[in-house]
Design a protein around this nucleic acid. Sequence first.
DNA 1: GTTTGTGCAAATTTTTTGCATGTAG
DNA 2: CTACATGCAAAAAATTTGCACAAAC
Lengths: 143, 143
Amino acid sequence: MLLQGLHQDGRRLTPQRKRVLELFERLGTGNHLSAEDVHQQLAQLEMKVSLATVYRTLRLLANMGFLQELELSEGGRRFELSGAEHRDHHHVVCIRCGRTEEFESEPVLLAGAEAAKGFGFKLIESTLNVRAICPDCQSKAMV
Amino acid sequence: MLLQGLHQDGRRLTPQRKRVLELFERLGTGNHLSAEDVHQQLAQLEMKVSLATVYRTLRLLANMGFLQELELSEGGRRFELSGAEHRDHHHVVCIRCGRTEEFESEPVLLAGAEAAKGFGFKLIESTLNVRAICPDCQSKAMV
DNA sequence: GTTTGTGCAAATTTTTTGCATGTAG
DNA sequence: CTACATGCAAAAAATTTGCACAAAC
């Protein structure tokens, strides 16, 4: 899968690229790694990859859709494996307590795909973020 | 509003903080500014604020909820005004160059509202984030 | 063999911080 | 008055890049 994607664009499958992707797969979804994290984790596994290459590889894998770039809070961008579970799922988040519920919606995906197409963009994925207040927080006193 | 929020935490309303927030309000929707952008725009308006203070202020305003940090752009974080006047518009973001297009979609809003309702949440706003690759970046080499 | 990729170190870009001075409350 | 905030410049992070060498195809 990685191999085909690479060859399709005249790119090469190197040990470094395999290592980076394998690291994410080994950790599973839900792990948010910065470039520095990836570099250090690989070093600990005796599979050194230079930091510059980590950066280049993260960008490559994200562009190819294997990884997903996340919102960066403090200190750098983070990436996670884009697994089926987290793809195209949407979130309802309580802005008070952070409680999060997930849902799916075909119309939303469709709208996202059409919007991308309308601007000439190549779609990767779309996520709807609904900011709301959960039942518990609604019944609590306003601050 | 800004004043109250600040005083509540023992903070002060300075001209600099007012200027940064006013800049976002003046530009209105559809503006995703990096710290550097804010700094330059204010300079052009003869309302200089040091870059260090811009960074400090963006973080403050985002924490207070006046600004919202956006996901996914190369070369720095971006902020936009959050609030009733500018809610419910969606973004198509190029994951490589950060180019962002906005759009609206009734079905998306509907889906968000229904999802919130389904979980018993009280809706505040919803934003669809579409990750994609823009035409320019599709044609550029990746290394 | 080509052509692409890597490592290294240096260069850039982005963000934070220490400190003296200024100022809102 | 007295915290808190600003500006400046320097420091620290984060990311990119030039180039010689290595290696995938």
